[in-house]
């Protein structure tokens, strides 16, 4: 009974979260929704007598893998890929039709399948404890796949290192080189560095562009990532001349 309650609350929520994952625009929101789905699954595992897997699901997936996703999102940033408009003509209807057909057929198949007996349940298998039962299997029947998978893990780690490694072809520019480069190329206006955000504006948060002497906004003062993402606030409302700057006499 408690399991049914859990299922009928968490299950639809998980499905809604999964659908939302496809619909939200920002990848980071997708990641959070996915994390929710995974936590739900962890609950389901535990509810089905897979205590160890439930814990691992939380630790490995929601913890490590999702952190990795967020970390990469931070590295890669956001770009036009976040747009949800379809660029390949006809792909979306086809894909959705096919996938729904797939899902429908699966559901139909599952509903038609009969076991011919009652589900056994894991009470007997978990008699000595779920972790002990899994360990028994892993280190006897599945010891060879276990070892192979360990080799796969090491290989994957090495592969990721190799892929992410960048061979430096020229020496890392020193501060002196950067300084010279700044003065020798581009305009002298940027030689002293780009303007910081919020300058001459009354609001100096990072998403508020600095104001040029003529009162217009200076986009160069905003981080490129924020600019691309459109997280730039119109700073005109914070212009000094819009604000009453009259100094009042203290009475």
């Amino acid at each position: 009974m408690p399991e049914s309650v859990l299922f009928w609350i968490m299950g639809p929520l998980a499905v809604v979260a999964a659908v939302g994952m496809l619909l939200v625009k920002k990848a980071v929101h997708s990641a959070l929704l996915l994390a929710w789905v995974m936590v739900t699954l962890a609950f389901f595992y535990i509810a089905q007598g897979a205590l160890f897997l439930g814990i691992v699901q939380v630790v490995v997936y929601t913890g490590a893998v999702m952190m990795l996703f967020l970390f990469i999102l931070m590295l890669v940033g956001v770009d036009a890929a976040d747009s949800l408009t379809e660029t390949i003509r006809g792909l979306r209807p086809i894909a959705i039709t096919a996938a729904i057909g797939f899902g429908g057929l699966m559901v139909s198949l599952i509903s038609r399948a009969t076991l011919g007996r009652e589900p056994v349940g894991l009470d007997a298998a978990n008699a000595a404890g779920n972790v002990q039962g899994l360990a028994q299997l892993l280190f006897s029947t599945y010891v060879w796949p276990f070892e192979v998978v360990s080799a796969l893990l090491i290989t994957a780690a090495l592969g990721a290192m190799v892929l992410a490694h960048r061979q430096r072809e020229v020496a890392r520019p020193s501060q002196r080189d950067l300084s010279e480069q700044r003065f020798r190329s581009g305009s002298l206006a940027t030689a002293a560095g780009l303007p910081g955000p919020g300058v001459f504006a009354r609001h100096n948060a990072v998403d508020v562009p600095a104001l040029l002497p003529d009162g217009s906004a200076a986009p160069a003062s905003i981080s490129e990532t924020l600019r691309t993402r459109g997280d730039m606030i119109d700073s005109s409302e914070f212009q000094l001349d819009q604000v009453n700057t009259e100094v009042r006499e203290e009475k």
């Binding site: 390949i88 096919a98 057909g101 797939f102 057929l105 699966m106 198949l109």
Partner: peptide, 16 residues
């Protein structure tokens, strides 16, 4: 993505 769509269609055929 179009290849992925083809895979999905293939899977549908298989399941069907």
């Amino acid at each position: 993505r179009s290849y992925a769509a083809l895979i999905v269609i293939g899977a549908v055929v298989l399941i069907a």
